[in-house]
Amino acid sequence: MITKRIIPCLDVKDGRVVKGIQFVGLRDAGDPVELAKYYDEEGADELVFLDISASHEGRKTMVDVVEQVAGQLAIPFTVGGGINTLEDMKKILRAGADKVSLNTAAVVNPDVITEGANFFGSQCIVVAIDAKFDETIGSWRVYTHGGRTATDWEVVAWAKEAVRRGAGEILLTSMDSDGEKNGFNNALNKAVSEAVSVPVIASGGAGNAEHFFAAFEEGKADAALAASIFHYKETSVKQVKDYLKSQGVNVR
């Protein structure tokens, strides 16, 4: 049976992993390859690298990072951040990434989803959605540009549209839950997961192992992503998986 996936997310800026990585025992806590290997050994099912470089040079460096990680790691990984065109996707996928994640670009130019899916197959194309509850529409609204720009899209409608256009997976981040460590937004996760035919990765709000269990049971998510609780060693991938196993969840 297919297992539920646990996915650590690493922010990369100009080729270095940034934002609160507290690891001892690593030669260099900012080295993407070392961190990727660390999470691999801990049992991470796949990884997400989010490129937060602001400059063109930083983006070019990301291709080198992808090559280094792919050259040394035997688990799959997704790269997101600043991918706008089919050319961008080609560079990242040819360097050894397994999937690319589109966020703002997908909303601004939805054709890019289809172009990517036609060229590489849907299984390579992840659409990332930043969702925030909006009382005026009584549902969640899609935000772009790192959560700074509200769009006209309601989240479930956009998720369905993204899948119709060829997205093979949805990476769903709750902006309301993100950073709060009070658990994933499972109403949101469930609404999207039940509305689309592709896997959904829950993101935003992980604080402990029980939260992952709830994301799968209540949120109907296929995978769950977290950053800080793993980086700060508040829990580990292994602890989360041990707990999930004890609750009867199928994990690797």
Partner: peptide, 12 residues
């Protein structure tokens, strides 16, 4: 139950 396609993830 309804399956998600693509078949994505670790399977035995």
């Amino acid at each position: 139950e309804k399956l998600k396609v693509p078949h994505m993830g670790w399977n035995d």
